[in-house]
């Protein structure tokens, strides 16, 4: 419960901050790819380096990765079927896949694995829409809903609970010790 509150608080804090919506959206989109595809795949290392290199919001990246990891795990059988269709049944793409799996270093990316191929394809297709959608969504939230949510009864009730008080004390202690 504590973790949930912390996560929700982090999301709200992030959304309410002055961080650029594009940076948050990039974090969500990159986290989406890493979360959806098998974590130990080599492309995720490159993505991580990209996240480090570009001005991408880390919190958004990790939160998004954690959320989509659960989604990705649940959808494993779907990725397997979709990957199989792409690799085996989609004949026109065969020569492209052969190139992708035989070139120098490329075999280490395991593009010939059905789950990697299925999940990565979906993640790449949805990357740009998600990136733009997330950025626009954050803007709309900030202009239209931020104040309304802050003043809402639900938030006030939540802030009145003992758990919220404990969380506030925990945050204060962290700040005092510089953690």
């Amino acid at each position: 419960m504590f973790v949930v509150i912390k996560t929700v608080h982090s999301i709200l804090k992030l959304l309410n901050s002055e961080t650029s919506p594009w940076q948050i959206a990039a974090g969500v989109a990159f986290g989406f790819i890493v979360g959806l595809t098998p974590l130990t795949s080599l492309h995720n290392l490159i993505l991580f380096l990209l996240v480090c290199l570009l001005r991408v919001n880390f919190s958004a990246f990790f939160i998004s990765m954690a959320v989509f990891k659960i989604v990705g795990w649940l959808l494993d059988p779907v990725w397997d079927s979709f990957g199989y269709w792409l690799l085996v049944d989609l004949k026109p793409a065969r020569s492209f896949w052969i190139e992708m799996t035989t070139g120098p270093l490329l075999p280490f990316f395991r593009f010939n694995n059905t789950v990697v191929m299925g999940s990565l394809s979906v993640a790449l297709i949805l990357f740009v829409p998600l990136f733009i959608g997330a950025a626009l969504g954050i803007r709309v939230y900030r202009y239209r809903y931020r104040d309304r949510i802050r003043d809402s009864k639900l938030v006030k009730v939540l802030q009145a609970t003992p758990l919220w008080g404990m969380y506030q004390k925990y945050e204060a202690a962290k700040a005092r010790f510089g953690l």
Binding site: I98, T102, N113, V116
Partner: peptide, 26 residues
């Protein structure tokens, strides 16, 4: 069952090995 590919089950998904001139055994 498909002649142009070999399929090897893995812990996650399946590895598809294409039977083609360019592809070499590991």
């Amino acid at each position: 069952s498909k002649d142009d590919v070999q399929i090897r089950p893995r812990a996650k998904g399946r590895d598809i090995i294409f039977i083609a001139e360019k592809v070499q055994p590991s």
